[in-house]
Amino acid sequence: MTGTVPTLAFWGLALLTIAGAAGVALSGHMVRSAFSLFAALFGMAGIYALLQADLMAVVQLLVYVGGISVLVLFAVMLTSGIGRVGTDNPSHRPIGGLLVLLAVLIPALGLAFRMPLGIESPADPTVAPIGDALLGRFVLPFEVVSVLLLAALVGAVNLARGWRRDPEERPSEEGR
């Protein structure tokens, strides 16, 4: 990440991410928090793109920005009386908050300063190596994760169907 243009872009994206994150925490309204989350995730995608991690950036856009944040918004908007939900955490105290902050920040900063910063040259497209790795060296973890997701999917379907298992209801015509 050398050069003035990427640096400027980085500061812009970093500002967007941090402002978004601050918005999530500080906004008094759940829906605004959800939209701030969207901004923060979008900024993250931009930073990935800046780091030449093209697949990561796009997957971030696809999964987090386009998927998760839309789902969160969807859920938040469908909740009735979302405007009245308190967003204050009653158990917070300045000291407790500070402790948590330090506990997260110090390792993170330590890690950040020990990492070599910047990439010297534009990296090669990462799609093919990641694909090779997923279906070659890491095929077992990949499949295990798939099985886990499948189990979650089946479980979700079962839960959703469970609501309808009502003796009063006539046998449903759909399905098959």
Binding site: R164, R170, S172, E173, E174, G175, R176
Partner: peptide, 15 residues
């Protein structure tokens, strides 16, 4: 659920 049209309509074998 009941609002969904049946998968089997007249003249359609279903499945």
């Amino acid at each position: 659920v009941s609002a969904l049209p049946p998968a089997v309509t007249p003249g359609n074998p279903g499945g």
